[in-house]
């Protein structure tokens, strides 16, 4: 999943880690972190009992082999050293995202989603519905939701692009 998201959606280096959004109440269930982290600015370790055992030569493995070694039940957001950059989601400040996490939890048992900024490499985070839609159409994102509007990729007409959009934003 990390590979797909990095290379097919964000068009950025495959080594870069992803961060989890977690229901504030569920944070301690998954992570060694007992306070809030609403702004994704604190890194904490995945709980010991959630970790997978590592091969004895783990630290000597080639980079990408190490990256794709199973480390936990939430692999995409568990960095190589078991750390994760947590965003706790709170009902008061982000009710809709909180609701989405609650529904996801009801369905899967996990009140947690992988969250990454809405942009491709070198592009600022999207601002208008048009920015969002274009970014959605140019990447392998499957669905887009803006306010109460749901767009499915399969249903969309092809985006008419002038030139190679990947040159639109300089690599950072």
């Amino acid at each position: 999943m990390q590979k797909k998201l990095n290379l097919k959606i964000k068009y950025r280096e495959s080594f870069r880690p992803f961060a989890p959004s977690v229901l504030a109440e569920d944070c301690t269930k998954h992570f060694e972190h007992n306070t809030t982290s609403p702004y994704m600015l604190i890194v904490a370790d995945v709980n010991k009992e959630k970790r997978s055992p590592l091969p004895p030569n783990y630290n000597e493995l080639p980079l990408m082999d190490r990256l794709y070694t199973k480390r936990s039940d939430v692999q995409a957001i568990t960095h190589l050293d078991f750390s994760a950059r947590i965003q706790t989601v709170h009902k008061e400040t982000n009710p809709r995202y909180y609701k989405l996490l609650e529904e996801f939890k009801a369905k899967t048992g996990y009140g947690m989603l992988v969250n990454t900024s809405f942009n491709v490499r070198g592009e600022p985070i999207v601002c208008t519905p048009e920015d969002s839609y274009r970014c959605f159409m140019r990447t392998e994102m499957d669905y887009l939701v803006i306010n109460n509007f749901l767009f499915s990729k399969k249903e969309q007409p092809a985006l008419k692009d002038k030139g190679d959009w990947r040159k639109e934003f300089a690599l950072d």
Binding site: E140, D142, V145
Partner: peptide, 15 residues
């Protein structure tokens, strides 16, 4: 959306 995500889809969220 929860169903869509549980099916392994990637969702752009603009809210």
């Amino acid at each position: 959306l929860a169903t869509i995500l549980a099916d392994g889809n990637v969702l752009g969220w603009h809210q």
